[in-house]
Amino acid sequence: MEDHEILRKFQDPASRNLAFNQLVRKYQSKVYWHVRKMVIDHADADDLTQDVFVKVWKHLENFRQDAALFTWIYRIATNECLGFLSSKRRKFLLPLTDVGADLAAKIEADPALAGDEIELKLQRAILRLPDKQRLVFNLRYYDEMPYEQMAEITGTSVGALKASYHHAVKKVEEYVTRSMGD
């Protein structure tokens, strides 16, 4: 179902639930993986993905359609992730590096990565990036999202995003190169 059709049906109370169900089915995988890449843990990603869609439900009526529906949903998901990581840091009084280490420990325990040393080092390097820079890196490197769309999601200029991604790639490459010598 096209976005405009989902939105049209959502406005009608009789078909609202059906339309929203379609929306969740359409975007759940993308939202989940976007969140999962940020929080690593499946249980956290599951909770946050549900939270994202509950927020979408609450605010969809006021969605002005000046952005694509998917961009708007991504923005909500991004804010949820950053809020989650920030609250986690505050809750446990952890510095940035310790949250990164916590996430790295989770990804190292993931059997999917077992035996792939380079991939493991790459993931460790990515998790050492500050949250917002990691977000930019994920959107560009994994999702191959255009900078313009990233700008809409993050509320940052295209130039700043390009610079952020460039620095992120350099940091990642340096870390992996260094760790390959260990």
């Binding site: 989940y32 993986w33 999962r36 890449k37 690593i40 990804i107 993931d110 999917a112 991939e119 790459l122």
Partner: peptide, 12 residues
């Protein structure tokens, strides 16, 4: 490095 659509992680 071979580019993947997402990091190597266990599936849900």
């Amino acid at each position: 490095h071979p580019r993947r659509p997402r990091p190597l992680m266990s599936e849900p």
